[in-house]
């Protein structure tokens, strides 16, 4: 009914062209803008953090070095000695997602990781890279993985499609996990925020009752900070695991 208060929780995910007609022609929306901001923030963090190049690092430099070593160790531990070739990719993947998730948590900002097109593209990139590396390292033996060892050939018609389906579900699960977490968090923010606005219309009682949704939003922010880094880590570690399988001879 017209005039009744409603909650448009998905409005925050809508894309709008920026830079007028040029932006419309180039399909330039807030998503690429926030990707650029995220990339810029990460590059600035690395550039200014490592600029002193001190033997005894300050806090800023130490944070850059810790970031580097965290991803480096994770990559090397998961993939092995061949992992160094994929370290920049894993680093880029982790910090691209992390910066996107965290910048999206700031008020009035946009979260580009809440779009499945983006998360799916990242997942497909990872998946394709793993397949290319697998075929390069293993050749045609790569396809032997779809038939588990020691299993009777009679079961092949059943098992091989299941294995292929399992394999193909990897990018889907990667994409949906990140997308769903981001969307769910921001929808909940929006819902509880809208509750506060709606309760404000009920006078003093509404103001008192609005404390609940505000407190929930504060708790949710802490939770989303955890989810933001956790999802970036999960995406990166799964990419490492897929690449470990790919580099194995």
């Amino acid at each position: 009914m017209a005039g009744e208060p409603s909650i448009n929780t998905f409005g925050q995910f809508e894309l709008h062209p920026l830079l007028g007609s040029i932006g419309k022609a180039l399909c330039f929306s807030q998503a690429p803008l926030y990707m650029m901001i995220s990339v810029g923030v990460v590059l600035a963090f690395l550039y200014y953090g490592i600029k002193p190049a001190a033997i005894v690092p300050g806090r800023f430099q130490a944070s850059v070095e810790m970031s580097y070593e965290f991803i480096h160790d994770m990559t090397m531990d998961a993939i092995g000695s061949d992992g160094i070739a994929y370290f920049p990719f894993i680093f880029a993947l982790f910090f691209f997602i992390l910066a996107g998730n965290y910048i999206g948590l700031l008020p009035y900002q946009y979260t580009f990781t809440s779009h499945i097109a983006i998360t799916f593209a990242l997942a497909v990139a990872t998946f394709t890279l793993a397949i290319v590396v697998s075929i390069k390292n293993q050749g045609l033996r790569f396809f032997a993985h779809f038939m588990p060892e020691g299993v009777s050939l009679f079961l092949a018609p059943l098992l091989v499609p299941i294995e292929i389906l399992t394999f193909l579900s990897r990018p889907v699960s990667l994409a949906i996990r990140l997308f769903a977490n981001m969307v769910a968090g921001h929808v909940m923010f929006d819902i509880f925020g809208a509750f506060v606005v709606m309760l404000a219309g009920f006078g003093v009682v509404g103001d008192v009752c609005a404390i609940g949704p505000v407190a929930l939003n504060v708790a949710l922010m802490a939770f989303e900070l955890l989810v933001g880094v956790l999802q970036a880590y999960v995406f990166a570690i799964l990419a490492c695991i897929y690449l470990r399988e790919a580099v194995a001879h």
Binding site: L15, H16, P17, L26, C27, F28, S29, A31, P32, M35, M36, V39, V42, L43, L46, Y47, I50, V64, E65, Y68, F87, P88, F89, F91, A92, F96, F112, H115, A117, I118, A121, L122, A125
Partner: peptide
């Protein structure tokens, strides 16, 4: 705009990757 952001994302991620792999990460 939904599909366009993927192309933009590809370009931006590529630039990010090369900036990291060629400049930033070797420096660190």
């Amino acid at each position: 705009l939904v599909n366009g952001q993927v192309i933009w994302g590809c370009v931006i991620f590529l630039v990010f990757y090369f900036a990291l792999s060629r400049a930033m990460l070797p420096r660190v």
